[in-house]
């Protein structure tokens, strides 16, 4: 089981999006999400969705991968979509007993579905094209101003780095311990919920013990390499904004202005 799980779906490549600074990617992603929700009518929604699709295509990662990441939340999307049909106002299109389908309801359903789908797609762009270490690095640097409020930004980033490093190690270990207990007749596949939770104890305890042992070792190894928190620390990789980032910024600004203009010049949607 465990060995099939791949964490951080980073897919190395050389596309324009891959070459963007991770900080730009995070900030732009946030603004795209905001504008997906600002879009208030079909024209503006179409514009931001098209722009997002363009970004997705320019990552040169097979579209299948994006569909895969959407499949996970397909149920949620459909469920909220269908639910939205029944709420709304405006012209009644169809009525039976207490169920009423209105123009507003249909609009709502389409909007919610398209918004969530676009959101997942554009978020996948970030995780697909950015290595986990670039991501933590960028988060650390973006959050740096928060140190003014005594938030331990460096420590948070270090924890993320260590977590990303050790999650695969611990998954493999879980797999090993499970096999060892199965070999002693532990039954983890049958019985009711209570029984199954109880059957996990022989796996969880060794896993905890070993995590503490690893943490201890790691702390010592970090001390040996003069780790002393974020103070006076330098980094090997320097993140630099380049022409690509400027281009991405201008492109996005154009799209965002377009969304606002569409919102103003086309009539708002019936809800």
């Amino acid at each position: 089981m465990g060995r099939d799980i791949t964490l951080g779906q980073f897919m190395p490549g050389h596309s324009v999006i891959h070459r963007l600074d991770a900080r730009s990617k995070i900030l732009l992603l946030i603004s795209y999400i905001v504008f997906i929700f600002i879009a208030g009518n079909y024209m503006s929604l179409l514009l931001i969705t098209m722009a997002s699709l363009l970004v997705v295509l320019s990552t040169r990662i097979s579209f299948k991968m994006y569909l895969k990441s959407m499949r996970v939340i397909l149920f949620v999307v459909l469920f909220t979509g269908i639910l939205n049909i029944f709420y709304g106002s405006g012209e009644v299109l169809w009525e039976w007993w207490i169920i009423k389908i209105t123009q507003g309801g249909i609009n709502n359903a389409i909007f919610v579905t398209v918004r969530i789908a676009t959101l997942v797609m554009i978020s996948s762009v970030l995780t697909f094209t950015t290595s986990p270490s670039d991501l933590t690095d960028a988060i650390e640097r973006l959050l740096k101003p928060l140190t003014v409020f005594h938030i331990k930004v460096h420590e948070i980033a270090m924890m993320m780095t260590i977590a990303l490093r050790f999650i695969p190690v611990l998954l493999e270990e879980t797999d090993k311990i499970m096999n060892a207990q199965k070999a002693r007749g532990a039954d983890m596949e049958s019985g009711n919920v209570f029984k199954r939770v109880k059957a996990l104890i022989p796996v969880l305890i060794p896993l905890f013990v070993s995590s503490f042992r690893r943490a201890n070792d790691l702390a010592m190894a970090m001390e040996c390499r003069c780790y002393n928190g974020g103070k006076g620390r330098t980094r090997m990789r320097i993140l630099r904004f380049s022409g690509v980032d400027l281009f991405a910024l201008i492109f996005s600004l154009v799209i965002f202005s377009g969304v606002i203009l569409c919102n103003i010049y086309f009539s708002p949607l019936t809800r």
Binding site: S131, L164, R165, V169, R214, Y227, R233, R235, M236
Partner: peptide
């Protein structure tokens, strides 16, 4: 396994130097 800090080889090797500034 327990003494490698970063998720990429070269970044782990850099860890000590980074700490030393």
């Amino acid at each position: 396994d327990n003494q490698i800090v970063a998720g990429i080889v070269e970044e782990d090797v850099a860890f000590g130097c980074e700490n030393l500034g």
